[in-house]
Design a protein around this nucleic acid. Structure first.
Lengths: 201, 201
DNA sequence: AAATTCCTCTAACAATCGTTAGAGAGGTCT
DNA sequence: AGACCTCTCTAACGATTGTTAGAGGAATTT
């Protein structure tokens, strides 16, 4: 891992726990094992580290979203014997590659902290935690409705309830305390219970 | 308002927006209009301000909860002509006196920021945003079930869905950006739509 | 009137903050 | 061999951090 990547990695870990302003350049450099002046060779100032993290996250979720679109539009091309319905595929993909992903999870925590005094981050935070997930689920269920799996008129509220349930669980288990295996398991179990009951038919 | 109260008020406003560590003693004193040494007459150190805020919040929600219990157990004693069902009474009370209340709302924001590196605040945060609201709603709906309004076996999932929906809306509208009238209205509307659909019978 | 308590001030402290100038080591190109 | 680029270092800068000692004015108690 390059020095620049190491700095971003350490900075993200510290920013997401204590907040951007509370972490000093010396804190980061001490953990990375470099002198402060070396950091300024890789970043023009402290803000630049934060901006680089945000930019990295932005392109990261862009890739994720385009991959999700791909799955949603071609649900049958999934490899393996039993082709899952797209809703399960997308959900498990979003959970593994997004909510459980160390980089994304820490970025969500960072945005949760910084959104109150950084408008750019606030907009990104709202988009990635509320708007995008809602639209993803809406796309899937609309597809299911047009395929005759469920009535068109029920789609909106099914999506709302599913989305709100998963969002609540995200805040409760994944954006609270450390992201331990125990919390991941608790999250997964509750998601599974909800899905099993909601779509038992 | 006493100097001590003024300090706590200003500190809460700043802490809840920028985080505890990012706010300096001089920031607070400048806004209050006192010298730094005066602050140290009222608080023994910076941490003492934070601790006092947490303690104030703790007793505040204790009072709220005991009041909610009172309403839940005696839903009929409400003044006015049309005695609301307790669920509506409690919900509107919790919204007005808790989520919309400036002090409580700012404290929730503060806890949201500080929970990641302060275990005491994390526990309080989890209790006030997830555990308590769930139990309050559970108590109400169990009462309704035992009164024959709804089947006992449905109670758990009705509560789960109602609670998760309101929690998601809280994060989306009330703990995101400034607590403007516009956001309050949006929150209220979505709560109302959900309730109207869920309990249209 | 004297003493005491309450509250705020001036002035400073050592420590830490973000940041920079400039030297030097190692590798690559001409 | 010399010029150049990449990366890290030593050493320091002015500003800001949380905190404290001690003086002074106003109100209250003795």
């Amino acid at each position: 891992m390059s020095t620049r990547d190491k700095i971003m990695d350490v900075a993200l870990n510290m920013f997401s726990e204590r907040g951007y302003e509370a972490v000093s350049i010396r804190d980061i450099c001490g953990e990375v094992g470099i002198k402060e002046s070396t950091l300024y060779y890789h970043f023009k100032n402290k803000k630049d580290i934060l901006d680089s993290l945000v930019e990295k996250f932005r392109t990261h979720i862009e890739d994720l979203l385009s991959h999700v679109d791909e799955i949603t539009e071609n649900p049958s091309q999934k490899k393996g014997k039993n082709a899952d319905p797209s809703v399960q595929m997308v959900d498990s993909y979003m959970i593994d590659s997004y909510l459980f992903d160390p980089f994304c999870n820490l970025m969500l925590r960072l945005m949760m902290i910084e959104q109150f005094h950084n408008e750019e981050i606030r907009v990104l935070y709202e988009k990635t935690l509320f708007t995008d997930p809602y639209e993803i689920q809406m796309n899937i269920f609309k597809r299911l409705a047009s395929a005759g799996v469920m009535p068109e008129e029920d789609v909106e509220w099914i999506v709302r309830e599913t989305h709100s349930y998963m969002t609540m669980l995200t805040f409760k288990y994944l954006l609270n305390g450390d992201l331990t295996e125990k919390r991941k398991k608790a999250y997964y179990k509750e998601v599974h219970d909800f899905m099993a009951r909601k779509f038992k038919a």
